[in-house]
């Protein structure tokens, strides 16, 4: 029988985590399908479970001195409903595109991050937001997202740790957007996607641009060359700046959803569409 822990205190949860090899579960929208997939081909085994959903206080979105803190139990739906500045429009757009309403009502943004799928819709948004992750464990720490994501479905989270919150720094005057491409209208894994945060000065010139592309490499990528090229450009003309060279760092693959060449081309288009949408 699979042991199931559902502590009411973070300390208890950490103690369980420290003592044994358990699978953390939040909304379960990644945990259950993965288990079903293994079971279908003859592996019904599952790790013991640590359910963190009855720990109070982790489902809040709070404004802090330097930005916003998004608790690890904040679901896509809760984020979508929250009163947040335009900086979050991209993440909110993603919140409406992840799965269907049922999945949005249960799935968490943090769970999406920790699954670290190349096609996770939250990840490029969080990269563009320059989110930091707040980790509880034997050695509590804050890690920038770029360092946290270490590879294909891999993160720097230790088996003894729990990710308690995301921290999104303030960026005045910034807006964000998200565009997703899939082979059907709803309930679809992204073939490619682009997220971006853009802050413009009073004259409409880009002061800071942060752009990220997902599903086109093992880990979603920021595009520093493009970001540099956009600095000082009038936001209306930003879409025209995007060139294939800016995507050199991507390494898309051929899979059941699309070809690598297509993904590269699509990423370029999505970035242009995204910037047009932000103009």
């Amino acid at each position: 029988m699979i042991a199931y822990h559902r502590p009411r205190k973070l300390e208890e949860a950490l103690a369980i985590r420290a003592a044994q090899d358990v699978a953390v579960i939040a909304g379960g929208t990644d945990v259950y399908p993965a288990a079903a997939g293994r079971r279908a081909w003859g592996d019904p085994t599952h790790k013991d479970v640590l359910d963190i959903t009855s720990i109070p206080g982790l489902d809040r979105i709070e404004e802090t001195a330097s930005g916003w803190r998004i608790g690890c139990l904040v679901t896509w739906s809760a984020l979508g409903r929250a009163a947040l500045p335009p900086l979050f429009d991209g993440l909110k757009a993603a919140a409406r595109e992840v799965g269907g309403v049922q999945v949005q009502n249960r799935g968490t943004i943090v769970g999406n991050l920790i699954t670290a799928s190349p096609a996770g819709d939250g990840i490029p948004n969080l990269l563009a937001l320059e989110a930091q992750v707040d980790i509880a464990g034997p050695r509590p720490r804050q890690v920038p997202l770029r360092e946290f994501l270490t590879g294909y479905r891999a993160t720097a989270l230790e088996p003894t740790e729990i990710l308690v919150a995301l921290h999104v720094p303030r960026l005045d005057g910034a807006r964000s957007g998200f565009v997703k491409l899939g082979a059907r209208r709803y309930l679809v894994i992204s073939i490619a996607m682009a997220a971006g945060v853009v802050a413009a000065d009073a004259t409409g010139r880009i002061a800071e641009a942060r752009l990220a592309v997902g599903a086109c490499s093992a880990v979603a990528q920021r595009l520093p060359a493009l970001e540099a090229a956009l600095r000082g450009v009038a936001i209306r003309e930003a879409a025209e700046v995007v060139q294939a060279d800016h995507l050199a760092a991507l390494s898309p693959i051929d899979d059941i959803r699309a070809s690598a060449a297509y993904r590269r081309g699509a990423a370029l288009t999505l970035l242009r569409d995204l910037l047009r949408g932000l103009a």
Partner: peptide
């Protein structure tokens, strides 16, 4: 059993969820 078909949709505290993705413990 994977959230893909929605045939198991029920309301949990009034909001639609896939019952196949909800640990029974979380119905408490």
């Amino acid at each position: 059993e994977a959230g893909d078909c929605g045939a198991c949709t029920v309301l949990l505290d009034g909001a639609q969820v896939c019952a196949c993705l909800v640990p029974t413990a979380q119905a408490e």
